[in-house]
Nucleic acid binder design. Structure first.
Length: 482
RNA sequence: GCGGUCAUAGUAUAGCCUGGUUAGUAUGUUGGCCUUCCAAGCCAAUUACCCGGGUUCAAAUCCCGGUGACCGCACCA
């Protein structure tokens, strides 16, 4: 299935759509989730909590989206989350200053260098616009963080460009009050904000987007954690073009240690359960130039879609970059006691893009069933926005009332959807399209023996189920995997 | 940000070149009739010219500007 089909489904069936549609000057890069999208997202996050947060005994927090300027001085975002750009006065093309200079005469200036250095090199060498040979304006920095003003004085603060900074800043309190013991994971789900130059492709490149981040604080001397690795030793990873178990990946040096292998393992098991095709997924180790400024080792979890490979999760070993930075800037201690050792913990993170993950789930789940002339969103039942359709075969003879009663008995526990209108086949098709895995239909026999037909989405098979068994049957079918 | 293409109902489209129609069609949606399990049929209703300015007696149509989308470049923790 392709991008166009997915976005069409998203627009038509209330998964997601552009923000502020009524206003024609609304900027790009902002999208909203409709009812089916929210329901899918909630269930995806419930799976995430089950498979990662609860499985590993992590803590979850919910931090502020607006954070003090100091936080981003310490984190390096003010200096490094920005590109030096230079603009042509004549044709107003904009270039990355460091790259343009390198291409023009081979001078390598680090992108984090002082802006004057760029201007000096441009001036001395008489570098002109590579496109039109026009003169170049002064180099300036484009920071991708949204700056905002707090209070009447408009004091500088920023919308967070990643959710994890509050995890780092909160770490000492969490560790003390929640009886922390290394290694300990802290997780957070929420919005992050980046002022992308050109947002594209709906959920895939947003200016305001959801992240689910996990930061695992660990003792750098204790990364050969064989006991943990045992739990996922046989999980097969597709990594750098090999299919290899977690255990073998460590032994062959593909993964640096048991600790990281364990987390990569549970992450892989989580994604397996989302319905994203594992044959179209891979882990990829990033080279020196691709890595983020804080990472010493980095793996991306990537998924192949009809518009290419998408990065869904960035797994970074951030060392003590963050806690060290915050300790230095705040003057607070971020060291903790681990056994008889005083350590500044290192951090391994799994930073997940939720919106992109949801897109991949949709694209990998959407099917065209030519034989039955229908579109089916073959979601895992536990992720389906609607669990069960509750339909009356016809409205008359008391069937409507009976159906309403059954619906009311289900709709607190399940995402049930009541529908009396139109031909039964049409109603089944509509449910198929939003991924509803089951439908029960009330017919005249129901009035006699309290049974209904239970129709299964993927096979279209039907069987009769007694109303007294319905709750049990549904709860079995819709349960999250163990 | 740059270049190219484009913008008409929830969705897909006709009409634009050559200005004047009640802005057409399909599908969807809603209500009704019919109907005892897979997009049937019939009746009715419903919904649109991206925004601003200009030209003109008259603009969906021509011109300018803006915004957005798609593709390419660049960018992308």
């Amino acid at each position: 299935m392709n991008y166009d089909k997915v976005i069409n489904l998203a627009l038509e069936r209330g998964f997601y759509f552009p923000s502020c549609e009524a206003y024609n000057n609304s900027p790009a890069g902002f999208w909203e989730y409709g009812p089916n999208g929210v329901s899918l997202k909630n269930k995806f996050l419930e799976l995430w909590r089950r498979e990662l947060v609860r499985r590993d005994g992590m803590m979850e927090i919910d931090g502020s989206q607006i954070m003090a300027k100091s936080v981003f001085e310490a984190s390096g975002h003010l200096a490094s989350f920005a590109d030096p750009i230079v603009r042509c006065v004549k044709c107003s093309s904009t270039f990355r200053a460091d790259r343009m200079i390198a291409e023009s005469n081979g001078t390598i200036i680090p992108e984090s260098a002082d802006l004057k250095e760029f201007d000096e090199v441009i001036h001395k060498n008489g570098i002109l616009c590579p496109r039109c040979q026009g003169p170049l304006d002064k180099t300036r920095k484009f920071n991708m963080m949204f700056r905002i003003g707090i209070g009447p004085e408009g004091e500088d603060a920023y919308l967070r460009p990643e959710t994890c900074q509050s995890i780092f800043v909160d770490f000492p309190r969490l560790y003390k009050t929640m009886r922390g013991k290394l290694p300990v994971g802290v997780a957070q789900v929420g919005k992050s904000f980046r002022n992308e130059i050109s947002p594209r492709q709906s959920l895939l490149r947003l200016r305001e987007f959801y992240q689910a981040e996990i930061e695992i604080f660990c003792n750098p001397d204790k990364l050969h954690d064989t006991a943990r690795l045992e739990r996922v030793r046989d999980v097969v990873l597709h990594i750098d073009n090999n299919d290899i178990t977690c255990k073998d990946a460590v032994e062959n040096g593909i993964l640096p240690n048991e600790f990281i292998a364990y987390y990569i393992g549970i992450l892989a098991e989580f994604y397996q359960k989302t319905g994203i095709s594992m044959e179209k997924s891979r882990f990829r180790q990033l080279g020196e130039k691709e890595k983020a400024f804080y990472a010493s080792v980095a793996f991306d979890f990537e998924v192949e879609t009809t518009i290419g490979w998408l990065e869904l999760v960035a797994c970074n070993y951030r060392t003590d970059y963050d806690l060290g930075g915050h300790a230095k800037h705040s003057g607070e201690s971020f060291q903790v006691i681990d056994g008889d050792q005083k350590v500044l913990p290192h951090v391994f993170e799994m930073s997940m893009g939720i919106d992109r993950s949801l897109y991949c789930i949709l694209e990998h789940s959407l099917m065209e069933d030519e034989n039955n002339n229908r579109t089916v969103l073959s979601l895992k039942p536990y992720l389906a926005p609607r669990h069960v359709g509750v339909l009356s075969l016809v409205k008359k003879d008391g069937l409507r009332e009976k159906t309403d009663t059954i619906y009311e008995s289900l709709n607190r526990k399940y995402d049930a959807f009541l529908d009396h209108a139109g031909a039964i086949g049409r109603r089944y098709r509509r449910l198929d399209e939003v991924g509803c895995p089951f439908a029960i239909t009330v017919d005249h026999q129901t009035l006699q023996d309290d049974t209904v037909t239970l129709r299964e989405r993927d096979t279209m098979n039907q069987r009769r189920v007694s109303l007294s068994d319905l709750d049990y049957t549904l709860s079995e079918y819709l349960a999250f995997p163990v």
